[in-house]
């Protein structure tokens, strides 16, 4: 059980953004992706999660092992906190939501409709979803957006616990999560060279 990325190259909107990305995640490891806005963090995570094809390279991961979490939390406004979680648990073949509600400090909000939650509470619900998927590899895209400092600490504890149980986490973030054991992967050196204008492009079709 591990996630191995080898010489991965990915594109956004037809233009290459990253190339030559290689790393390996083993059980108990966390990796923080760093890089300026627009450097391709989200594209890389979507590629690893299987939502878009890679341009080149290899992604090796066991089938159905990746839990993906993005900017949008996949929460239905007219369902309650418990109903939202129970749905994702059922989709992933899990029975019940366990203590996910308590772990993300949502117990007092459990029966409230998601449309009445604040942005940070919604985010906590979105992160609680990771717990009910039962999947070992968490691929998280800026998980701490709109969380307060206490909730960031709570989230860091959650990740630490997940790692201790043999899980893995790949996190794109701009802030310091307080995970001293996590490795940092800087994406700046992997920026793709854009193809030169004219080279192999439009004109060749007419020659």
């Amino acid at each position: 059980m591990m996630l191995r990325i080898h010489d991965l190259s990915c594109a956004r909107g037809g233009l290459p953004v990253l190339e030559g990305v290689s790393f390996t995640l083993e059980p108990g490891m966390a990796m923080i992706l760093r890089g300026p806005n627009g450097c391709g963090k989200t594209t890389l995570l979507r590629t690893i999660a299987g939502l878009q094809p890679a341009r080149a390279g290899v992604i090796e991961a066991p089938a159905d092992s990746i839990a993906y979490s993005a900017h949008a939390d996949g929460i239905k406004a007219t369902l309650s906190v418990t109903e939202n979680l129970a749905f994702w648990a059922a989709v992933h073949g899990q029975t019940g939501t366990g203590d996910a509600v308590a772990q993300m400090n949502l117990a007092s909000l459990a029966s409230r409709q998601a449309q009445n939650l604040s942005a940070g509470q919604k985010r906590r619900l979105g992160l609680a979803r990771l717990l009910v998927t039962g999947r070992p590899i968490w691929v998280l895209d800026e998980p701490t957006v709109s969380l307060d400092t206490d909730s960031v600490v709570l989230f860091a504890q959650l990740v630490t616990l997940h790692l201790e149980r043999g899980g893995m986490a790949l996190i794109a973030t701009h802030i310091d999560l307080g995970l001293p054991e996590a490795q940092v992967f800087d994406l700046r050196p992997h920026k793709a060279r854009l193809p030169e204008p004219g080279a192999g492009g439009f004109d060749e079709a007419f020659l």
């Binding site: 299987g50 939502l51 990746i66 993906y68 949008a72 239905k76 989709v91 979803r129």
Partner: peptide
């Protein structure tokens, strides 16, 4: 699609 559920459903075992 708007609330991200579709992305998550696409990565789910279904």
């Amino acid at each position: 699609f708007e609330d991200g559920s579709l992305d998550l459903l696409a990565t789910a075992p279904l």
